[in-house]
Amino acid sequence: MPIVFEGVSYSYTAPAKPKDAKKPRIKAKEASIPGERPAWGNAPDALWAIHDIDFTLEDGDFLGIAGHTGSGKSTLIQHMNGLIHPTLGRVLIDGTDIADKKAASRIRGKVGLVFQYPEHQLFAANVYDDVAFGPRNLGLPPDEVDRCVRDALAQVSLDFDSLRTASPFELSGGQQRRVAFAGVLAMRPSTLILDEPVAGLDPATRNSFLNLIAELHRQGLTVVLVSHNMNDLARLCNRVLVLKEGQQFALGSPQEVFAHADELKAIGLGVPSAQGLANRLVAQGVPLGDISAALSPRRTAANPEGATKRLYDIESLADELAALYKAQPAAGAIQPEETVHEGQAGGPYA
């Protein structure tokens, strides 16, 4: 069920009216009045919250969306399940334009959107009713609803029997968020969109949540993850979309996107920690990923671009630095430690 964005733009000052889908949804004149109140974000003269977004979310994708506050991330993801409609351009899901109300309501159960701090939206007296709210609204029969709730709670590793009657408000923050998650999963979506799903959690809870999301993706869900954390995006995603002031700034594999550390920094974003350090080392002339250069007596010139040939994580960066260290002709002053550490030095050059 690919989701196709075709030249999608959205303005909060001149939103589309879905009823008039047939008519041109906005007069061009109206959309380009300069000096109007900013639509969104930081740029005072920005009229477009997102502008000319053009990409396809394929089945099985794990797409990361990054961007500075106000860059249009939340506006963009709300287009994916028809919560808002493009002012210009269109969003196609399975080939159908979701500006059509009927089409939008058909797909809304298929595209699950988990907002920031979803636990703020818990409302029911017990966990069961909260999770069952979605499937009941889809008009499913009670036994089917029951199965949805059981499956969804199992998916988020919560115990059905002990929690079904518990009030969601008496659970810990991490459990509350799992319940909120389950409420979306109970609709059996094929695409899951998560807006900063681990914000405000402690490191241990964060990791278990990210593992849960990765597991859902492995089970076949298409996942869209909005995050400020470049380490998470690099580790989990197969593609990353970077937004800048509502426009597509970069789209590609994590390796392609994070190679442009300086440009990302200029728009207020970072790169994954290991990649950032690798870029800085290469910029200083450390011949990362180039053992032969390390062997030659002449050091390679500093590489101001700081571009590396691959995307590093902590393990691979440590592997290559260790390989470089061992390859250094002058490093032989103290040798005996090598045998001790050989067993642990797994990696391509060990």
Partner: peptide, 12 residues
Amino acid sequence: KLSIELQKRGVP
């Protein structure tokens, strides 16, 4: 983390 990984691999 990286310091420790490097130490494990014998980088002082």
